[in-house]
């Protein structure tokens, strides 16, 4: 589904990802772990289409299509979803209004009729139930005044509404208490389908107790230095990132 080859990315001349490679197939959950500042969020942004970065070399293929040339909204309509680490507040625009606009833009792209108000409301209720979100957040303005946990739950709810083929969750677990974490993990698990894939970006192993990954990759200095199964996450928890750094022979920066 997603194939990243020899990708190098920089910002203001500073290289963030170097010769990065990743293959993600349908049905898989990949966890990308690593200390702060190693390029995890940059990877998420680049896949979603943020134009802050310079792509110096390499390619990103998604469903066989060149992603780099695609506008972020086209990527979204093609099924890529980014769950933000810091979801943006948009006062004055209701969640319902926002999601209906988003869904209908996607439907239009796929030459589908727009959802009527009633169909939309029905879908919203159904998805709220699916991801166990009972709060009235859909009546409020997008993320406005939401707590950290509510914002992250709202990202999962949006994901449930938009039904992506490839979801990238950028530090969705950061700042969550255990209950919110369970709601987020539960949502991701319920939305899992054989034809979809998920990339979970996280600093800690904790989330991976609830979302069990097929692959774990450790990102260091802009590239994957170690990959393994779910047991790698546990090992990391025990031994810390220092262990991987030494093993990979990477000099200590800072």
């Amino acid at each position: 589904m997603l194939s990243i080859k020899d990708l190098s990315v920089s910002i203001h001349g500073k290289t963030i990802l170097r010769d990065f490679n990743l293959e993600v197939n349908a049905g898989e959950i990949h966890a990308i772990m690593g200390p702060n500042g190693t390029g995890k969020s940059t990877l998420a942004s680049v896949i979603a289409g943020r134009d802050l970065f310079d792509i110096d070399k390499g390619e990103i293929l998604y469903m066989g299509k060149d992603l780099i040339e695609m506008e972020p909204e086209v990527r979204a309509r093609e099924g890529i979803f980014l769950g933000f680490q810091y979801p943006v507040e948009i006062p004055g625009v209701s969640m319902a209004n926002f999601l209906r606009t988003a869904i209908n833009e996607k439907r239009k792209y796929h030459a589908l009729e727009p959802l009527s108000g009633a169909e939309f409301l029905k879908l919203m209720e159904e998805r709220k139930k699916l991801v166990d979100i009972h709060s009235k957040l859909t009546n409020r303005s997008v993320n406005e005044g939401f707590s950290g946990g509510e914002k992250k739950k709202n990202e999962i709810f949006q994901m449930a509404m938009l039904e992506p083929r490839l979801a990238i969750l950028d530090e969705t677990d950061s700042g969550l208490d255990i209950d919110a974490l369970k709601v987020v993990a539960n949502g991701v698990n319920k939305l899992r389908k054989p034809e979809n894939a998920t990339i979970v970006i996280t600093h800690y192993q904790r989330l991976l107790e609830y979302i069990v990954p097929d692959f774990v990759h450790v990102l260091f200095d802009g590239r994957i230095v170690k990959s393994g199964g779910k047991e790698l996450a546990i090992e990391l928890e025990e031994k810390g990132y220092e262990w991987v750094r030494k093993e990979a022979g990477i000099e200590e920066t800072l």
């Binding site: 979603a48 972020p72 909204e73 979204a76 890529i80 980014l82 926002f98 988003a102 869904i103």
Partner: peptide
């Protein structure tokens, strides 16, 4: 914020 909206499929 612009990026956020575009990642949701809005032009």
């Amino acid at each position: 914020a612009m990026f956020y909206l575009r990642t949701r499929g809005m032009c």
